[in-house]
Design a protein around this nucleic acid. Sequence first.
DNA 1: ATGTATGCAAACCATTTGCAATGAC
DNA 2: GTCATTGCAAATGGTTTGCATACAT
Lengths: 162, 162
Amino acid sequence: MDANKIKEQVKIRFTEYLNENRHRKTPERFAILDHIYSTKGHFNVESLFQSMNSCNFRVSRATLYNTIELLLDCGLLIKHQFGENISQYERAIGNENHDHLICTSCGKVKEYKNGNLFTPAQQKKVQKFKVSYYSMYIYGICAKCLKEKQQAEKKNKSSKNT
Amino acid sequence: MDANKIKEQVKIRFTEYLNENRHRKTPERFAILDHIYSTKGHFNVESLFQSMNSCNFRVSRATLYNTIELLLDCGLLIKHQFGENISQYERAIGNENHDHLICTSCGKVKEYKNGNLFTPAQQKKVQKFKVSYYSMYIYGICAKCLKEKQQAEKKNKSSKNT
DNA sequence: ATGTATGCAAACCATTTGCAATGAC
DNA sequence: GTCATTGCAAATGGTTTGCATACAT
């Protein structure tokens, strides 16, 4: 039951994040996190909305967007935009890092697990997939924002102890 | 004047593409291609619209979208979506392949030219940029679409000689 | 009690679509 | 002359926003 271990871990991490940032620990937020970590593949807001409502838990789209924002911010969720105008998401933890093969004709996305060894320039055909170009996106925090964030945290902590 | 050489080349390639696909060679299409290949960085439809109209050439947004579609299809243009809901584009030829550093806080995008040597897992700090995750997107044509495309081409050629 | 989070509905805005006029073939 | 392409304006649809209500603190 590795899956449940991961669920516990991410719940702890999310709780910490909410505490640190003075956000409320609402049932909706934890339900959404749990639901997201119950599947491995990509999803979008609409499919998550359908899936949650039909299954057991009633949430509004607004809350989904809101919570997704938080999960992105604390690094538990990854956002993708594969050319379509619908944002795709996937859980960040317990998913090995993988490349994405995106067909520019039909838009289908295949995952391609290959460690970090893949160098597209050297290898023009992958799994019967004709590569036309590739992009490496590295998401993170730039120096300026990091500095601001650290200052905000410092301020936050000092006011906590007031 | 390497830039002009590139402009010539892409113009030839675009002409070939238009011929092959029985699309008309309108002045708008070539003006847009030329304009795109006059700058190196990222742009979006709005900025291209402003830039073209203010400079010299009057085009509608609809035509921009239309032409961009063609340029994407024939591999002369690359489309990016960096989390925002505005699509970004950049010329595909004469731009060395580069990674993109995207700040998840302020949304700014920096280019990071480093051949294909960069392995983020091994190197967590790049240029004072705190990496939280990365994605490699490989765009191309999947086997199914490639087959369909080849069949369509065959059909196209036979009808050409009728 | 206080004020953040939720849910609903309306607003937003990049992109797409419909259609009459234009112009490439 | 024919029909794809253009340009305009309206429609679309994912996402955001405003606000009254609910509920975590």
